[in-house]
Amino acid sequence: MPPVRGSRRGAAGVVASGVLALTCAAAPAAEDDWARTYFLEGGAMPACGICHSLDAAEATGTVGPDLDLLEPTEQQVYLALRDGVGVMPAFSEELPEDRLRALADYVARAVQE
């Protein structure tokens, strides 16, 4: 079970994660593992989790919006990563296109849980 689902709390979460597992079976667990780790640890760029809260990753940053409240779409996350927004840096020089997509996919699903 990928960590994104493993970290859920509460009964409602269990139900929701069941639905998620069915509808989003396409995303391989390894991708989610990578995305969650990257979210928390970053690379040469600062980690998403320093600036953002995301329950699924147990991230509690407060510089940028709480992603669980913002509920961005995949494309919205992707564009933020590709181009940056306000004081959020772009990640397109550090990460190739498929990693940007994997991260965006992970975040967009995690906030729907």
Binding site: P46, I50, C51, G61, V87
Partner: peptide, 12 residues
Amino acid sequence: IPEGLDPLTVIV
């Protein structure tokens, strides 16, 4: 500016 961030990244 939170710790762990280069201030130049986010400072307004």
